[in-house]
Computed example of a mutant assay.
Amino acid sequence: MALSNQDLKYLYNTAQLATTLNIGRSTVNKYTRSLEEAGYEYLKDGYGHRSYAEHDIIALRALVELLARGVDYGSAIKDIVARYKPNSRSESLDLTATPGSSHHVAIADAMLTAKIDELMYVVTQLNGKINDIVDQRVRNEVAAATAGISGQVNEVLNEVRTAQERTEQQLSKLGSRIEQHGKRKKFLGLF
C-alpha cells in the first residue's frame, strides 16, 4: 500500500512499535515478515519501509498474546491474518483498518478482540476440564470393571476350592469304605 499525507499522523515506525509492544525490533521485523508472507499488507513509503497504523498495532498485540498463550507460531500467524487483514470483509476490521478511523473505534475493536481471545482461552480451559472429567470417568469405569472382574474371579476360585474340598471329602469317605470293605473281607474269610 502506498502512503499518503493523510496517513502520516497515524503511523508508527518499527522502534515505536517495538516499544509499544514491549518486544525487540528484530522480533517486530520477524512477525511482520511472517504476516506479510501470509497475506497481510502494511503501509510502505517510497523506499519500501513499513509503517504501522493503529490497526497494525492491535493485530501485532493480538499475535504477541496468542504466542504467549502457547499457540503454534504458524497457526497464530494464520489466525491474525484471517482476523486483521486490512480490506477484509469483516465490518469491525473495515472500521479500524481505514486510515481515517477514530482512536475510539480502534480501542473498541481492541477490546472486542481481547474479549474474543479471553473467550477462546475460557473455552480451551473448559475443554481441558471436560477432558479431565472424561479421563476420570474412564478411570472409574475401568476400576469398577476391574473390581467386578476380580469379584467374579474370586467367586470362581471359591467355587473351585469348595469343589476340591467336596471331592477330597468324598475321596476320603470312599477310601475309608474301601478300607472297611477290605477288613470285612478278611473278617469273613476267617469263617
Score class of each variant (00 low, 15 high):
A53T: 07
K44T: 10
L63M: 15
V64A: 09
L67F: 08
A53P: 00
G48R: 09
Y47P: 00
Y40Q: 02
L43F: 13
E54I: 04
E54K: 09
L60V: 05
A68E: 14
A59N: 05
L66S: 06
S51H: 13
I58V: 12
K44N: 03
L67R: 15
Y42V: 04
H49R: 14
I57P: 00
Y47G: 14
S51N: 14
Y42L: 11
R69K: 14
A62M: 10
Y47H: 15
Y52I: 12
H55I: 02
A62I: 00
L63T: 14
L60D: 04
E65A: 11
L66G: 01
A62N: 07
A53N: 11
V64R: 09
Y52P: 09
L43V: 12
H49N: 15
A53S: 15
K44Y: 02
E54N: 12
E54D: 11
A68T: 10
G46T: 07
Y42G: 04
Y47E: 15
I58D: 01
V64W: 00
L63Q: 15
G48T: 10
I57G: 07
I58G: 01
L67A: 09
D56Y: 04
I57V: 15
Y47C: 09
E65T: 06
G46C: 06
H49Q: 14
A53C: 06
A59C: 05
E54Q: 08
E65L: 08
D45A: 07
D45C: 05
A68L: 08
E54F: 11
E41Y: 05
Y42C: 04
I58R: 12
H55D: 02
V64D: 06
A53I: 01
R50E: 13
L43Y: 14
R50V: 11
A59K: 02
Y42K: 06
E65M: 05
D45T: 01
Y42Q: 06
A59T: 11
G48S: 08
Y52R: 10
L66H: 03
A62K: 07
Y40G: 06
E54P: 06
E41S: 14
Y42M: 06
R69T: 09
R69P: 03
L60N: 01
H55R: 03
V64T: 13
I57L: 12
A68G: 11
G48P: 03
A62R: 12
H55M: 03
D45E: 10
D56W: 01
A59V: 04
E65H: 11
R61C: 02
R69H: 12
I58E: 03
L67W: 05
E41T: 08
Y52A: 12
Y40P: 04
R61A: 07
R50L: 07
E41L: 08
Y40V: 02
G46M: 04
E65I: 10
L66A: 02
V64C: 11
A59R: 12
R61M: 06
A53F: 07
R69I: 03
L60H: 01
H55P: 02
L67E: 10
A59S: 04
E54L: 13
